[in-house]
Design a protein around this nucleic acid. Sequence first.
RNA 1: CGGGAUGUGGCCCAGUCCGGUUAAGGCACUCGCUUUGGGAGCGAGGGAUCGCAGGUUCGAAUCCUGCCAUCCCGACCA
Length: 486
Amino acid sequence: MAKITKQSEDFSKWYTDTILNADLADYGPVKGTMVVKPYGFSLWSNVKKALNTMIEDSGHENAYFPLFIPKSFFEKEAKHVEGFAKECAVVTHSKLIAENDGLSVDPDSKLEEEIIVRPTSETIIWSMFKKWITSYRDLPVMINQWANVVRWEMRTRLFLRTSEFLWQEGHTAHATKEEAMEETLKIVEIYKSLFEDHLAIPTLIGKKSDSEKFAGAEETFSIETMMQDKKALQAGTSHYLGTNFGNAFDVTFQSKDNKEQPVYATSWGVSTRVIGALIMVHGDDKGLKIPPKVAPQQVIIVPINPKNEDEKEFNSFINQVANALNQKNIRCKVDSSDNTPGFKFNFWELRGAPIRVEIGLQEYKDQKLTVCRRDTGEKTSIEHNDIDGIQDILDDIQNSMYSSAASFLKENTIELDSYKDLQEKLSEDNYFIKAYWDGSEDSEMKVKEDTKATIRCILEDIDDTKAKCIVSGGPAKHLVIFAKAY
RNA sequence: CGGGAUGUGGCCCAGUCCGGUUAAGGCACUCGCUUUGGGAGCGAGGGAUCGCAGGUUCGAAUCCUGCCAUCCCGACCA
Protein backbone atom coordinates (compact mmCIF):
# COMPACT_ATOMS: atom_id res chain seq x y z
CA MET A 1 0.00 0.00 0.00
CA ALA A 2 1.66 3.14 -1.20
CA LYS A 3 1.19 6.73 -0.11
CA ILE A 4 -1.18 8.72 -2.26
CA THR A 5 -0.52 12.05 -3.98
CA LYS A 6 -1.88 15.07 -2.12
CA GLN A 7 -5.00 16.70 -3.56
CA SER A 8 -3.31 20.08 -3.61
CA GLU A 9 -0.39 18.69 -5.60
CA ASP A 10 -2.32 17.00 -8.40
CA PHE A 11 -6.01 16.38 -7.99
CA SER A 12 -6.38 13.89 -10.80
CA LYS A 13 -3.37 11.88 -9.66
CA TRP A 14 -4.85 11.89 -6.16
CA TYR A 15 -8.06 10.51 -7.66
CA THR A 16 -6.36 7.64 -9.46
CA ASP A 17 -4.05 6.84 -6.55
CA THR A 18 -7.00 6.71 -4.19
CA ILE A 19 -9.00 4.33 -6.35
CA LEU A 20 -6.10 1.96 -6.92
CA ASN A 21 -4.85 2.01 -3.33
CA ALA A 22 -8.28 1.78 -1.75
CA ASP A 23 -8.88 -1.32 -3.83
CA LEU A 24 -11.97 -0.02 -5.59
CA ALA A 25 -10.85 -0.87 -9.09
CA ASP A 26 -8.00 -1.75 -11.39
CA TYR A 27 -7.25 -1.31 -15.08
CA GLY A 28 -8.47 -3.99 -17.45
CA PRO A 29 -6.29 -5.42 -20.22
CA VAL A 30 -8.16 -3.65 -23.04
CA LYS A 31 -7.60 0.08 -23.25
CA GLY A 32 -10.28 2.01 -21.43
CA THR A 33 -11.70 -0.92 -19.52
CA MET A 34 -11.74 -1.31 -15.77
CA VAL A 35 -12.16 -4.09 -13.26
CA VAL A 36 -14.42 -3.21 -10.36
CA LYS A 37 -12.82 -4.98 -7.41
CA PRO A 38 -14.86 -6.44 -4.53
CA TYR A 39 -14.57 -3.39 -2.28
CA GLY A 40 -15.63 -1.09 -5.12
CA PHE A 41 -18.40 -3.43 -6.16
CA SER A 42 -19.72 -3.63 -2.65
CA LEU A 43 -19.95 0.17 -2.63
CA TRP A 44 -21.71 0.12 -6.01
CA SER A 45 -24.08 -2.59 -4.77
CA ASN A 46 -25.13 -0.40 -1.86
CA VAL A 47 -25.79 2.51 -4.20
CA LYS A 48 -27.64 0.19 -6.53
CA LYS A 49 -29.78 -1.24 -3.76
CA ALA A 50 -30.86 2.21 -2.59
CA LEU A 51 -31.67 3.39 -6.11
CA ASN A 52 -33.36 0.18 -7.16
CA THR A 53 -35.70 0.40 -4.19
CA MET A 54 -36.75 3.90 -5.19
CA ILE A 55 -37.20 2.87 -8.83
CA GLU A 56 -39.35 -0.11 -7.93
CA ASP A 57 -41.34 1.77 -5.32
CA SER A 58 -42.30 4.32 -7.96
CA GLY A 59 -43.89 1.67 -10.16
CA HIS A 60 -41.10 0.57 -12.46
CA GLU A 61 -40.26 -3.03 -13.23
CA ASN A 62 -36.84 -4.48 -13.87
CA ALA A 63 -36.19 -6.41 -17.07
CA TYR A 64 -33.28 -7.26 -19.28
CA PHE A 65 -32.73 -6.55 -22.97
CA PRO A 66 -29.95 -7.92 -25.18
CA LEU A 67 -26.45 -6.51 -25.43
CA PHE A 68 -26.52 -6.86 -29.23
CA ILE A 69 -28.50 -4.46 -31.37
CA PRO A 70 -28.99 -4.70 -35.14
CA LYS A 71 -27.21 -1.87 -36.86
CA SER A 72 -30.36 -0.94 -38.76
CA PHE A 73 -32.09 0.03 -35.51
CA PHE A 74 -29.70 2.91 -35.05
CA GLU A 75 -30.48 4.21 -38.51
CA LYS A 76 -34.09 4.83 -37.58
CA GLU A 77 -33.66 7.94 -35.44
CA ALA A 78 -31.49 10.58 -37.16
CA LYS A 79 -30.24 12.53 -34.13
CA HIS A 80 -29.60 9.38 -32.19
CA VAL A 81 -27.44 7.99 -35.02
CA GLU A 82 -25.47 11.22 -35.12
CA GLY A 83 -24.85 11.14 -31.39
CA PHE A 84 -23.63 7.58 -31.11
CA ALA A 85 -22.19 6.67 -34.51
CA LYS A 86 -18.68 7.73 -33.55
CA GLU A 87 -18.40 5.57 -30.46
CA CYS A 88 -19.85 2.19 -31.25
CA ALA A 89 -18.22 -1.20 -30.97
CA VAL A 90 -19.33 -3.21 -33.98
CA VAL A 91 -19.49 -6.97 -34.30
CA THR A 92 -18.75 -8.03 -37.87
CA HIS A 93 -17.72 -11.67 -37.69
CA SER A 94 -18.68 -14.76 -35.75
CA LYS A 95 -15.66 -17.01 -36.06
CA LEU A 96 -11.96 -17.26 -35.47
CA ILE A 97 -9.55 -19.61 -37.16
CA ALA A 98 -6.64 -21.14 -35.31
CA GLU A 99 -3.49 -20.71 -37.35
CA ASN A 100 0.09 -21.82 -36.82
CA ASP A 101 0.92 -19.02 -34.38
CA GLY A 102 -2.39 -17.61 -33.23
CA LEU A 103 -5.94 -16.78 -34.10
CA SER A 104 -7.34 -14.79 -36.97
CA VAL A 105 -10.83 -13.73 -38.00
CA ASP A 106 -12.50 -16.12 -40.40
CA PRO A 107 -13.45 -14.01 -43.43
CA ASP A 108 -16.18 -16.50 -44.29
CA SER A 109 -17.98 -15.79 -41.04
CA LYS A 110 -18.81 -12.19 -41.94
CA LEU A 111 -22.26 -11.30 -40.61
CA GLU A 112 -24.98 -10.33 -43.02
CA GLU A 113 -26.05 -7.47 -40.79
CA GLU A 114 -23.49 -6.00 -38.47
CA ILE A 115 -24.34 -5.91 -34.79
CA ILE A 116 -23.81 -2.96 -32.48
CA VAL A 117 -22.83 -3.49 -28.87
CA ARG A 118 -25.35 -1.27 -27.05
CA PRO A 119 -24.15 2.21 -26.16
CA THR A 120 -27.68 2.68 -24.75
CA SER A 121 -30.85 0.69 -25.31
CA GLU A 122 -33.58 3.03 -26.59
CA THR A 123 -33.64 1.40 -30.00
CA ILE A 124 -33.88 -2.21 -28.97
CA ILE A 125 -36.37 -1.40 -26.25
CA TRP A 126 -38.63 0.56 -28.59
CA SER A 127 -38.47 -2.25 -31.13
CA MET A 128 -39.97 -4.41 -28.40
CA PHE A 129 -42.43 -1.77 -27.24
CA LYS A 130 -43.89 -1.90 -30.73
CA LYS A 131 -44.88 -5.49 -30.05
CA TRP A 132 -46.20 -4.79 -26.58
CA ILE A 133 -48.20 -1.62 -27.08
CA THR A 134 -51.43 -1.56 -29.06
CA SER A 135 -54.07 -0.20 -26.71
CA TYR A 136 -54.37 2.52 -24.08
CA ARG A 137 -54.74 -0.40 -21.69
CA ASP A 138 -51.08 -1.30 -22.32
CA LEU A 139 -49.84 2.06 -21.09
CA PRO A 140 -47.84 3.20 -19.34
CA VAL A 141 -44.95 0.80 -19.74
CA MET A 142 -42.32 1.49 -17.13
CA ILE A 143 -39.16 -0.56 -17.52
CA ASN A 144 -35.78 -0.37 -15.88
CA GLN A 145 -32.70 -2.42 -16.56
CA TRP A 146 -29.36 -2.78 -14.83
CA ALA A 147 -26.81 -3.38 -17.53
CA ASN A 148 -23.42 -2.73 -19.00
CA VAL A 149 -23.04 -0.50 -22.05
CA VAL A 150 -20.12 0.20 -24.35
CA ARG A 151 -19.05 3.56 -25.71
CA TRP A 152 -15.73 3.58 -27.52
CA GLU A 153 -13.96 6.43 -25.77
CA MET A 154 -10.74 8.14 -26.76
CA ARG A 155 -9.67 9.28 -23.31
CA THR A 156 -10.76 7.34 -20.31
CA ARG A 157 -10.60 7.67 -16.52
CA LEU A 158 -11.52 5.13 -13.87
CA PHE A 159 -15.24 5.35 -13.04
CA LEU A 160 -15.70 8.68 -14.83
CA ARG A 161 -15.32 7.53 -18.39
CA THR A 162 -14.52 3.97 -19.39
CA SER A 163 -15.29 2.16 -22.60
CA GLU A 164 -17.61 -0.19 -20.80
CA PHE A 165 -19.57 0.85 -17.75
CA LEU A 166 -22.40 -0.30 -15.54
CA TRP A 167 -25.60 1.63 -15.10
CA GLN A 168 -29.32 1.49 -14.82
CA GLU A 169 -31.37 2.73 -17.72
CA GLY A 170 -35.07 3.42 -17.37
CA HIS A 171 -37.37 3.46 -20.38
CA THR A 172 -41.01 4.41 -20.17
CA ALA A 173 -43.86 4.78 -22.64
CA HIS A 174 -46.87 7.01 -21.98
CA ALA A 175 -50.17 7.98 -23.56
CA THR A 176 -49.70 11.73 -23.18
CA LYS A 177 -46.99 14.32 -23.31
CA GLU A 178 -47.92 15.56 -19.84
CA GLU A 179 -47.57 12.14 -18.30
CA ALA A 180 -44.17 11.59 -19.93
CA MET A 181 -42.91 14.96 -18.76
CA GLU A 182 -44.17 14.25 -15.27
CA GLU A 183 -42.26 10.96 -15.31
CA THR A 184 -39.09 12.69 -16.52
CA LEU A 185 -39.26 15.11 -13.60
CA LYS A 186 -40.22 12.47 -11.06
CA ILE A 187 -37.02 10.60 -11.91
CA VAL A 188 -34.99 13.75 -11.43
CA GLU A 189 -36.38 13.91 -7.89
CA ILE A 190 -35.47 10.27 -7.29
CA TYR A 191 -31.91 10.92 -8.44
CA LYS A 192 -31.73 14.03 -6.29
CA SER A 193 -32.75 11.94 -3.31
CA LEU A 194 -30.17 9.28 -4.12
CA PHE A 195 -27.41 11.87 -4.22
CA GLU A 196 -28.46 14.00 -1.31
CA ASP A 197 -29.94 11.47 1.12
CA HIS A 198 -27.69 8.50 0.44
CA LEU A 199 -24.46 9.78 -1.08
CA ALA A 200 -24.41 13.07 0.86
CA ILE A 201 -23.78 14.94 -2.39
CA PRO A 202 -25.58 18.25 -2.94
CA THR A 203 -26.95 18.70 -6.46
CA LEU A 204 -28.02 21.29 -8.95
CA ILE A 205 -30.87 20.40 -11.22
CA GLY A 206 -31.57 21.91 -14.55
CA LYS A 207 -32.18 21.48 -18.22
CA LYS A 208 -29.42 20.89 -20.74
CA SER A 209 -28.82 23.33 -23.56
CA ASP A 210 -29.46 21.98 -27.07
CA SER A 211 -25.78 21.32 -27.65
CA GLU A 212 -25.47 19.28 -24.46
CA LYS A 213 -28.67 17.31 -24.49
CA PHE A 214 -28.99 13.59 -25.20
CA ALA A 215 -29.01 12.58 -28.85
CA GLY A 216 -32.65 11.89 -29.64
CA ALA A 217 -34.18 13.78 -26.70
CA GLU A 218 -36.53 16.74 -26.75
CA GLU A 219 -35.38 17.81 -23.30
CA THR A 220 -32.61 16.55 -21.06
CA PHE A 221 -32.61 17.25 -17.34
CA SER A 222 -29.40 16.67 -15.46
CA ILE A 223 -28.10 16.35 -11.96
CA GLU A 224 -24.93 18.41 -11.72
CA THR A 225 -22.50 18.06 -8.83
CA MET A 226 -19.35 19.91 -7.81
CA MET A 227 -16.10 18.06 -7.21
CA GLN A 228 -13.46 19.37 -4.79
CA ASP A 229 -11.44 20.75 -7.69
CA LYS A 230 -14.57 22.79 -8.39
CA LYS A 231 -15.22 21.14 -11.70
CA ALA A 232 -18.70 19.95 -12.55
CA LEU A 233 -19.70 16.34 -12.93
CA GLN A 234 -22.94 15.36 -14.62
CA ALA A 235 -24.05 12.59 -12.31
CA GLY A 236 -27.40 11.58 -13.76
CA THR A 237 -29.71 12.44 -16.62
CA SER A 238 -33.41 12.14 -17.31
CA HIS A 239 -34.72 12.64 -20.84
CA TYR A 240 -38.09 13.57 -22.20
CA LEU A 241 -37.99 11.90 -25.62
CA GLY A 242 -41.33 13.09 -26.98
CA THR A 243 -42.51 10.89 -29.81
CA ASN A 244 -39.07 10.57 -31.40
CA PHE A 245 -38.61 6.90 -30.67
CA GLY A 246 -42.30 6.10 -30.92
CA ASN A 247 -42.25 7.51 -34.44
CA ALA A 248 -38.95 5.92 -35.37
CA PHE A 249 -40.21 2.48 -34.39
CA ASP A 250 -43.76 3.10 -35.49
CA VAL A 251 -45.33 2.60 -32.08
CA THR A 252 -48.88 3.83 -31.63
CA PHE A 253 -51.86 2.89 -29.48
CA GLN A 254 -55.62 3.02 -29.81
CA SER A 255 -57.33 5.33 -27.37
CA LYS A 256 -60.63 4.69 -25.60
CA ASP A 257 -62.47 6.36 -28.44
CA ASN A 258 -60.70 4.11 -30.96
CA LYS A 259 -58.28 6.67 -32.37
CA GLU A 260 -54.65 5.97 -33.26
CA GLN A 261 -52.40 7.98 -30.97
CA PRO A 262 -48.61 8.55 -30.72
CA VAL A 263 -46.68 7.20 -27.74
CA TYR A 264 -44.54 9.48 -25.61
CA ALA A 265 -41.27 8.35 -24.10
CA THR A 266 -38.73 8.96 -21.40
CA SER A 267 -35.36 7.48 -20.61
CA TRP A 268 -33.01 8.07 -17.72
CA GLY A 269 -29.78 6.73 -16.32
CA VAL A 270 -27.29 6.74 -13.50
CA SER A 271 -23.97 4.96 -13.90
CA THR A 272 -20.93 3.81 -11.93
CA ARG A 273 -19.79 7.37 -12.51
CA VAL A 274 -21.51 8.15 -9.19
CA ILE A 275 -18.64 6.32 -7.52
CA GLY A 276 -16.31 8.85 -9.11
CA ALA A 277 -18.48 11.66 -7.80
CA LEU A 278 -18.51 10.19 -4.32
CA ILE A 279 -14.72 9.94 -4.33
CA MET A 280 -14.15 13.47 -5.60
CA VAL A 281 -16.79 15.15 -3.43
CA HIS A 282 -15.80 13.61 -0.11
CA GLY A 283 -12.25 12.26 -0.29
CA ASP A 284 -9.23 13.86 1.35
CA ASP A 285 -5.46 13.34 1.48
CA LYS A 286 -5.92 10.23 3.59
CA GLY A 287 -8.13 8.63 0.95
CA LEU A 288 -11.81 7.88 0.65
CA LYS A 289 -14.55 9.13 2.91
CA ILE A 290 -17.66 7.08 2.36
CA PRO A 291 -21.04 8.23 3.65
CA PRO A 292 -22.32 5.67 6.19
CA LYS A 293 -25.45 4.77 4.24
CA VAL A 294 -23.48 3.28 1.36
CA ALA A 295 -20.24 2.30 3.09
CA PRO A 296 -19.32 -1.38 2.61
CA GLN A 297 -18.16 -1.39 6.24
CA GLN A 298 -19.68 1.22 8.54
CA VAL A 299 -17.66 0.29 11.60
CA ILE A 300 -14.20 -1.24 11.68
CA ILE A 301 -13.00 -2.67 14.95
CA VAL A 302 -9.25 -2.56 15.40
CA PRO A 303 -8.11 -4.77 18.26
CA ILE A 304 -4.93 -3.69 19.97
CA ASN A 305 -3.74 -6.90 21.52
CA PRO A 306 -2.53 -6.66 25.07
CA LYS A 307 0.80 -8.30 25.87
CA ASN A 308 0.15 -10.43 28.89
CA GLU A 309 -3.58 -10.50 29.23
CA ASP A 310 -5.91 -13.36 28.77
CA GLU A 311 -6.28 -13.30 25.00
CA LYS A 312 -9.37 -15.46 24.99
CA GLU A 313 -11.42 -13.14 27.13
CA PHE A 314 -10.14 -10.11 25.27
CA ASN A 315 -11.20 -11.62 21.95
CA SER A 316 -14.58 -12.59 23.26
CA PHE A 317 -15.12 -8.99 24.40
CA ILE A 318 -14.36 -7.83 20.86
CA ASN A 319 -16.66 -10.39 19.26
CA GLN A 320 -19.41 -9.44 21.65
CA VAL A 321 -19.19 -5.81 20.53
CA ALA A 322 -19.10 -6.82 16.84
CA ASN A 323 -22.11 -9.10 17.19
CA ALA A 324 -24.11 -6.47 19.00
CA LEU A 325 -23.46 -4.01 16.18
CA ASN A 326 -24.29 -6.48 13.44
CA GLN A 327 -27.50 -7.42 15.19
CA LYS A 328 -28.59 -3.81 14.95
CA ASN A 329 -27.86 -3.90 11.21
CA ILE A 330 -24.72 -1.87 11.47
CA ARG A 331 -22.22 -3.22 8.95
CA CYS A 332 -19.26 -4.02 11.14
CA LYS A 333 -16.03 -5.92 10.71
CA VAL A 334 -13.17 -6.82 13.02
CA ASP A 335 -9.78 -6.35 11.38
CA SER A 336 -7.96 -9.28 12.89
CA SER A 337 -5.17 -9.37 10.33
CA ASP A 338 -1.67 -9.47 11.78
CA ASN A 339 -0.77 -5.96 10.71
CA THR A 340 0.08 -3.41 13.35
CA PRO A 341 -2.69 -1.16 14.70
CA GLY A 342 -1.13 1.89 13.06
CA PHE A 343 -1.22 0.15 9.71
CA LYS A 344 -4.87 -0.72 10.18
CA PHE A 345 -5.77 2.85 11.12
CA ASN A 346 -4.30 4.12 7.87
CA PHE A 347 -5.65 1.24 5.83
CA TRP A 348 -9.26 1.83 6.84
CA GLU A 349 -8.96 5.59 6.58
CA LEU A 350 -7.77 5.09 3.01
CA ARG A 351 -10.78 2.91 2.38
CA GLY A 352 -13.10 5.46 3.90
CA ALA A 353 -14.77 3.47 6.69
CA PRO A 354 -16.90 6.03 8.58
CA ILE A 355 -16.14 4.78 12.11
CA ARG A 356 -13.18 3.03 13.63
CA VAL A 357 -13.53 1.46 17.04
CA GLU A 358 -10.27 0.89 18.89
CA ILE A 359 -10.28 -1.78 21.54
CA GLY A 360 -7.15 -2.35 23.60
CA LEU A 361 -6.30 -3.20 27.16
CA GLN A 362 -7.63 0.11 28.45
CA GLU A 363 -11.04 -0.31 26.80
CA TYR A 364 -11.25 -3.92 27.92
CA LYS A 365 -10.64 -2.95 31.53
CA ASP A 366 -13.08 -0.02 31.44
CA GLN A 367 -15.63 -1.85 29.26
CA LYS A 368 -15.64 1.15 26.95
CA LEU A 369 -15.00 1.78 23.29
CA THR A 370 -12.75 4.39 21.73
CA VAL A 371 -14.62 5.63 18.68
CA CYS A 372 -12.88 7.57 15.93
CA ARG A 373 -14.77 9.35 13.14
CA ARG A 374 -13.35 9.31 9.63
CA ASP A 375 -14.86 12.66 8.68
CA THR A 376 -13.42 14.74 11.52
CA GLY A 377 -10.79 12.46 13.03
CA GLU A 378 -12.39 13.15 16.40
CA LYS A 379 -12.04 10.44 19.08
CA THR A 380 -14.59 9.81 21.81
CA SER A 381 -15.13 7.17 24.44
CA ILE A 382 -18.48 5.44 24.86
CA GLU A 383 -19.89 2.52 26.87
CA HIS A 384 -19.27 -0.85 25.24
CA ASN A 385 -22.98 -1.59 24.88
CA ASP A 386 -24.03 1.82 23.63
CA ILE A 387 -25.03 0.67 20.14
CA ASP A 388 -27.47 3.55 19.74
CA GLY A 389 -24.58 5.88 20.44
CA ILE A 390 -22.71 4.40 17.45
CA GLN A 391 -25.80 4.71 15.27
CA ASP A 392 -26.12 8.35 16.31
CA ILE A 393 -22.54 9.01 15.28
CA LEU A 394 -23.14 7.32 11.92
CA ASP A 395 -26.18 9.52 11.35
CA ASP A 396 -24.22 12.56 12.34
CA ILE A 397 -21.41 11.69 9.95
CA GLN A 398 -23.93 11.24 7.14
CA ASN A 399 -25.45 14.66 7.84
CA SER A 400 -22.26 16.57 8.36
CA MET A 401 -20.71 15.13 5.21
CA TYR A 402 -23.70 16.50 3.34
CA SER A 403 -23.54 19.90 4.95
CA SER A 404 -19.85 20.39 4.37
CA ALA A 405 -20.24 19.43 0.71
CA ALA A 406 -23.22 21.79 0.49
CA SER A 407 -21.30 24.73 1.91
CA PHE A 408 -18.42 23.97 -0.45
CA LEU A 409 -20.81 24.16 -3.38
CA LYS A 410 -22.30 27.38 -2.08
CA GLU A 411 -18.92 29.02 -1.43
CA ASN A 412 -17.74 28.26 -4.93
CA THR A 413 -20.82 29.28 -6.84
CA ILE A 414 -20.68 32.93 -7.84
CA GLU A 415 -23.13 35.18 -9.63
CA LEU A 416 -21.66 37.39 -12.32
CA ASP A 417 -23.02 39.81 -14.90
CA SER A 418 -19.89 40.99 -16.69
CA TYR A 419 -18.12 38.87 -19.29
CA LYS A 420 -14.76 40.29 -18.27
CA ASP A 421 -15.30 39.05 -14.70
CA LEU A 422 -16.30 35.64 -15.99
CA GLN A 423 -13.09 35.34 -17.99
CA GLU A 424 -10.97 36.61 -15.11
CA LYS A 425 -12.53 34.35 -12.52
CA LEU A 426 -12.24 31.27 -14.68
CA SER A 427 -8.63 31.97 -15.47
CA GLU A 428 -7.83 32.18 -11.74
CA ASP A 429 -9.60 29.05 -10.60
CA ASN A 430 -12.62 26.86 -11.22
CA TYR A 431 -16.07 28.03 -10.15
CA PHE A 432 -19.72 27.46 -10.83
CA ILE A 433 -20.76 30.72 -12.41
CA LYS A 434 -24.40 31.64 -12.29
CA ALA A 435 -25.24 34.05 -15.11
CA TYR A 436 -27.78 35.06 -17.72
CA TRP A 437 -27.63 33.64 -21.22
CA ASP A 438 -29.42 34.69 -24.38
CA GLY A 439 -29.98 31.12 -25.48
CA SER A 440 -27.82 31.37 -28.61
CA GLU A 441 -25.29 28.78 -29.60
CA ASP A 442 -22.85 31.55 -30.52
CA SER A 443 -22.72 32.85 -26.96
CA GLU A 444 -22.41 29.34 -25.63
CA MET A 445 -19.51 28.53 -27.98
CA LYS A 446 -17.72 31.77 -27.24
CA VAL A 447 -17.55 30.97 -23.55
CA LYS A 448 -16.29 27.49 -24.35
CA GLU A 449 -13.56 28.81 -26.63
CA ASP A 450 -12.46 31.57 -24.28
CA THR A 451 -12.56 29.70 -20.99
CA LYS A 452 -13.21 25.96 -21.62
CA ALA A 453 -16.29 26.28 -19.43
CA THR A 454 -19.63 25.06 -20.76
CA ILE A 455 -23.24 25.52 -19.81
CA ARG A 456 -23.80 22.77 -17.29
CA CYS A 457 -27.48 23.41 -16.95
CA ILE A 458 -30.27 25.89 -17.32
CA LEU A 459 -31.55 26.67 -13.83
CA GLU A 460 -34.57 28.65 -14.94
CA ASP A 461 -36.12 30.47 -17.87
CA ILE A 462 -36.22 34.22 -17.64
CA ASP A 463 -39.00 36.53 -18.66
CA ASP A 464 -37.47 39.81 -17.57
CA THR A 465 -36.52 42.35 -20.19
CA LYS A 466 -33.93 43.90 -17.89
CA ALA A 467 -31.85 40.70 -17.68
CA LYS A 468 -28.93 40.77 -20.12
CA CYS A 469 -26.87 37.90 -21.48
CA ILE A 470 -23.39 37.85 -19.91
CA VAL A 471 -21.82 37.14 -23.27
CA SER A 472 -23.71 39.16 -25.87
CA GLY A 473 -25.39 41.77 -23.69
CA GLY A 474 -28.61 40.98 -25.53
CA PRO A 475 -31.89 40.06 -23.82
CA ALA A 476 -31.47 37.00 -21.61
CA LYS A 477 -33.66 33.95 -21.91
CA HIS A 478 -32.18 31.71 -19.24
CA LEU A 479 -30.33 31.70 -15.95
CA VAL A 480 -27.56 29.13 -16.31
CA ILE A 481 -24.49 27.63 -14.67
CA PHE A 482 -21.18 27.90 -16.52
CA ALA A 483 -18.39 25.60 -15.34
CA LYS A 484 -15.56 23.43 -16.50
CA ALA A 485 -16.74 19.86 -16.55
CA TYR A 486 -15.49 16.29 -16.46
C1' C B 1 -5.66 9.82 -36.57
C1' G B 2 -1.54 13.94 -35.56
C1' G B 3 2.52 15.59 -31.58
C1' G B 4 5.51 13.68 -27.28
C1' A B 5 7.22 9.78 -24.04
C1' U B 6 7.87 4.89 -22.19
C1' G B 7 8.28 -0.67 -22.35
C1' U B 8 13.52 -4.59 -17.47
C1' G B 9 10.35 -10.14 -11.35
C1' G B 10 3.37 -8.71 -9.04
C1' C B 11 4.44 -3.00 -8.62
C1' C B 12 8.11 1.35 -8.89
C1' C B 13 12.48 1.41 -11.38
C1' A B 14 18.74 1.50 -12.00
C1' G B 15 21.63 -0.13 -15.95
C1' U B 16 21.10 1.55 -22.39
C1' C B 17 24.65 7.22 -24.50
C1' C B 18 30.18 4.21 -24.33
C1' G B 19 28.12 -4.01 -25.80
C1' G B 20 31.76 -7.90 -21.69
C1' U B 21 31.10 -12.49 -15.41
C1' U B 22 25.71 -14.35 -11.62
C1' A B 23 20.80 -7.76 -14.42
C1' A B 24 21.24 -3.73 -9.10
C1' G B 25 17.83 -1.49 -5.57
C1' G B 26 13.02 -0.37 -3.15
C1' C B 27 7.94 -2.05 -2.29
C1' A B 28 5.09 -6.46 -2.20
C1' C B 29 5.36 -11.93 -1.30
C1' U B 30 7.05 -16.72 1.77
C1' C B 31 9.34 -18.72 6.43
C1' G B 32 11.30 -17.79 11.46
C1' C B 33 12.01 -14.91 15.89
C1' U B 34 11.03 -10.34 18.35
C1' U B 35 6.94 -6.79 18.12
C1' U B 36 1.69 -4.44 18.43
C1' G B 37 -2.24 2.72 21.38
C1' G B 38 -0.79 6.06 14.10
C1' G B 39 2.06 2.94 7.91
C1' A B 40 7.19 -2.46 13.04
C1' G B 41 12.51 -4.65 13.34
C1' C B 42 16.08 -8.36 12.25
C1' G B 43 17.47 -12.80 9.65
C1' A B 44 16.64 -16.23 5.70
C1' G B 45 14.12 -17.29 1.00
C1' G B 46 11.30 -17.51 -3.83
C1' G B 47 10.42 -15.00 -8.22
C1' A B 48 13.05 -11.85 -14.92
C1' U B 49 13.48 -16.14 -21.61
C1' C B 50 15.14 -7.31 -20.21
C1' G B 51 7.67 -5.67 -25.11
C1' C B 52 7.93 -8.94 -29.87
C1' A B 53 10.59 -10.49 -34.44
C1' G B 54 14.79 -10.22 -37.27
C1' G B 55 19.91 -8.46 -37.92
C1' U B 56 25.25 -6.92 -36.52
C1' U B 57 28.95 -9.28 -33.16
C1' C B 58 33.29 -14.08 -30.25
C1' G B 59 29.54 -11.80 -27.02
C1' A B 60 23.27 -7.75 -27.02
C1' A B 61 18.81 -5.25 -21.80
C1' U B 62 22.58 -2.09 -24.31
C1' C B 63 23.91 -1.13 -31.43
C1' C B 64 20.67 -1.47 -36.32
C1' U B 65 15.75 -2.52 -38.85
C1' G B 66 10.70 -3.61 -38.52
C1' C B 67 6.47 -4.43 -35.59
C1' C B 68 3.41 -4.24 -31.16
C1' A B 69 1.60 -2.17 -26.69
C1' U B 70 0.76 1.51 -23.01
C1' C B 71 0.68 6.51 -21.10
C1' C B 72 0.42 12.00 -21.73
C1' C B 73 -1.23 16.24 -25.01
C1' G B 74 -5.07 17.52 -29.10
C1' A B 75 -10.19 16.42 -32.28
C1' C B 76 -15.12 13.03 -29.39
C1' C B 77 -17.94 12.13 -24.66
C1' A B 78 -22.55 9.44 -19.33
